[in-house]
């Protein structure tokens, strides 16, 4: 649990003038499950494509499993599997035929391919559909076929670009269980790009956040949320019978109050070393009744919105 299996150094990709990935420094250890987060267009897909040798970096280097992604891209693709963004399948072939084709491209002996196909179809719950043409598959079924296509080569590293897009909660959980199992039993390293924060929280030990091509955070989810709150700030959530601008003005004048946000019936008061009693007294004196008062908790989305925010 210490050797880096994916490393990038100053990895950069430019499309003309536009820099999609900017001097990226990554290090992922063997056996880790890492989430890759970031707003749309941040450069996640571009990074994954470069790591698989499908896109050539403009500058910088990257190694996957010790192989250079440019010079030894074929070896990289031997030990790493990817489910690309918007991946598709041969609709006129059956699930089994699709998997056989991928197996052949990986030079896996026929008997071995057939064994693995049976196991994988079992794992992704497609046994009943094994000999049905993919054109009849629902989106989630195709997605599960895609996952088995990644795994058929028995990779050491698996890249997933939004694998749960279009999956129902049950399938999402099943996918998570499959990945966790492979990680636990075979030490599979997983690098997963996703927009589903709860999904990432439950699957990944660590997350990398990329924004406008730059890495802005690399840590555990717990640490990231703590960072956000440990700025000597506390925030209190109130639910009041009545809120008007006069009250907000009065609260802003209380010493220690940094800001006041209103969301419908709710009021969030951000304090710095402030006096909570004085805040509540101001409210009651104004004539409003406090229905609820508690320290504010942040949802994952709120935490990440902060990281996603443009400077």
């Amino acid at each position: 649990m210490s050797k880096p299996i994916i490393e990038t150094h100053q990895l950069t990709k430019q499309y003309g003038e536009f820099t999609a990935v900017n001097n990226l420094e990554l290090s992922i250890n063997e056996g880790e499950i890492v989430g890759f987060l970031g707003p749309n267009g941040a450069g996640k897909t571009t990074t994954l494509l470069m790591l698989m040798g499908l896109s050539v970096p403009t500058s910088g280097t990257a190694t996957v499993g010790g192989y250079d992604v440019v010079e030894e891209s074929k070896q990289v693709r031997q030990i790493a599997g990817m489910m690309p963004e918007g991946s598709g399948y041969y609709e006129d072939l059956t699930a089994r035929q699709n998997l056989q084709y991928i197996g052949q491209l990986n030079d896996i002996p026929k008997d071995e391919v057939d064994n693995r196909i049976d196991e994988l179809l079992e794992a992704v719950d497609l046994v009943k559909w094994a000999d049905t043409k993919v054109e009849k598959f629902s989106r989630g079924m195709k997605q599960r076929l895609g996952i088995s296509e990644v795994l058929i080569k028995q990779p050491k590293i698996a890249f997933f670009d939004e694998p749960t897009l279009g999956l129902d909660p049950k399938s999402t959980k099943e996918l998570r269980d499959i990945l966790l199992k492979l990680n636990k039993e075979q030490g599979l390293t997983i690098f997963l790009s996703s927009h589903l924060l709860h999904e990432v929280q439950q699957t990944c030990q660590r997350v990398l956040i990329i924004r406008r091509g730059k890495l802005v955070a690399a840590d555990t989810i717990a640490n990231l949320s703590n960072n956000l709150l440990s700025k000597d700030m506390s925030s209190i959530e109130f639910e009041l019978t009545e809120i008007d601008s006069d009250l907000i003005q009065k609260l802003n004048d209380v010493s220690g109050v940094k800001s006041v946000e209103q969301q419908n019936h709710k009021l969030f008061v951000n304090l710095e070393n402030g006096n909570v009693r004085e805040v509540s007294e101001t409210i009651t004196k104004h004539g409003s009744i406090i229905l609820l008062m508690k320290p504010r908790t942040f949802s994952l989305e709120e935490i990440f919105l902060d990281y996603y925010k443009e400077d």
């Binding site: 070896q75 690309p84 491209l105």
Partner: peptide
Amino acid sequence: TRGSLSVILSQPIF
């Protein structure tokens, strides 16, 4: 357009 190109290019072929 179907998305199978990136899938087969993710296999160890040139």
